[in-house]
Computed example of a mutant assay.
Amino acid sequence: MTQEINLKSEITATQTGLRLDQALAELFPDYSRTRIKEWILSGAVYVDGVKVDKPREKVLESQQIEIEATFEEEVKAKAQAIDLNIVYEDDHIIIVNKQAGLVVHPGAGNADGTLMNALLHHCPAIEMVPRAGIVHRLDKDTTGLMVVAKTVEAQTHLVAALQAREIVREYEAIVLGTMTAGGTVDEPIERHPTKRTQMSVQHGGRPSVTHYRVSEKFRAHTRLRLRLESGRTHQIRVHMDYIGHVLVGDPVYGGRPKPPKNASPEFFDILKNFGRQALHAVRLELAHPYTHEIMSWQAPIPEDMVMLTKALRKDTEENPIQYL
């Protein structure tokens, strides 16, 4: 169950000089320090009316604190026998090639049938690791590679590496419009002010950087290879929408597909019926949390994106791009 939280308080004399996260833990003891830190980092905490997203910032007596956040009641996950495509596993980590349609962990509307449920069945001891070892997310209908920690020590190391941008995550995507060159989108992201299920580029949001390069050009679409520096919710989808090149099939940011001029009925059917965002986490590279060896994995492009690419090539052959 999701609740909107609005908390207000004032910094006392005895809390002067404390870090923000420490002070808030004293002011709001009903909430865990982990949750309070998440709220600070997500931009949900205001000090004297100004958003503060640094947990280590020192506080002063009489400062007014306000928290505006979404509180999602945690669901106790149970083990479930769900097929997983595990591409690598040892005593410390698991690398999963996630299929489309699989939610990463339980939440509102998804009490079970998630990656977390599957991991608890596959490796029962992972119950002792926070979030069943999940280090980062992929959207429900995004496919591809994820790293999961089997121990608390491995998870701590991987989370730190992720925050230090030491884990390489590359994606394949197909977007609307013909792009002439690659580039970088360096725009802050936070939750949309009115559409609560969406994220958006907003001044004052969390820093977010996406690099992209053109892999293949079609008549009215482009295949991209992207690399993330940050890992915000819906980051690639939001950044591509921001620059006017939404992902094919994106049900949230994409809208209804419009066929290019002279497109065959067969091609339009493929485009119209592509049932998810055309996004795949194709490559993952990291330093192993125990051996520190640099390891890299690649996941084959899923069949639905392969078929879409073939259809795009055929459409381009039948309607050659006219260069002026």
Rank of each mutant, 00 (worst) to 15 (best):
82 I>Q: 07
72 E>R: 12
55 P>W: 04
75 V>T: 13
34 T>L: 08
70 T>Q: 13
98 K>P: 00
91 D>Q: 15
38 E>C: 10
94 I>W: 04
48 D>I: 08
106 P>D: 10
65 I>K: 00
61 E>T: 15
33 R>D: 02
99 Q>Y: 08
75 V>A: 08
43 G>E: 03
90 D>E: 12
84 L>Y: 04
71 F>K: 12
87 V>N: 02
98 K>D: 02
80 Q>D: 13
63 Q>C: 04
63 Q>K: 06
48 D>P: 03
66 E>G: 01
80 Q>W: 00
55 P>C: 07
39 W>G: 00
61 E>V: 14
71 F>L: 15
105 H>K: 09
60 L>N: 09
33 R>T: 11
72 E>S: 14
72 E>G: 09
104 V>K: 01
60 L>S: 13
63 Q>W: 07
86 I>R: 01
88 Y>H: 03
58 K>I: 10
60 L>T: 09
60 L>I: 08
75 V>W: 07
106 P>E: 10
40 I>Y: 06
33 R>G: 13
60 L>D: 06
49 G>H: 10
101 G>R: 13
32 S>I: 04
35 R>Y: 10
62 S>C: 07
57 E>Q: 15
50 V>S: 10
39 W>R: 02
46 Y>R: 14
108 A>P: 07
70 T>A: 09
61 E>A: 14
95 I>W: 04
30 D>E: 15
96 V>C: 01
74 E>T: 12
32 S>M: 09
45 V>I: 11
73 E>Y: 10
40 I>F: 06
52 V>F: 00
79 A>W: 04
45 V>L: 07
69 A>F: 00
98 K>T: 02
30 D>V: 01
55 P>Y: 04
76 K>V: 15
79 A>P: 06
60 L>C: 11
37 K>L: 07
59 V>I: 11
87 V>W: 00
81 A>H: 13
48 D>Y: 05
105 H>T: 13
53 D>E: 08
85 N>M: 02
54 K>E: 15
60 L>P: 00
57 E>I: 05
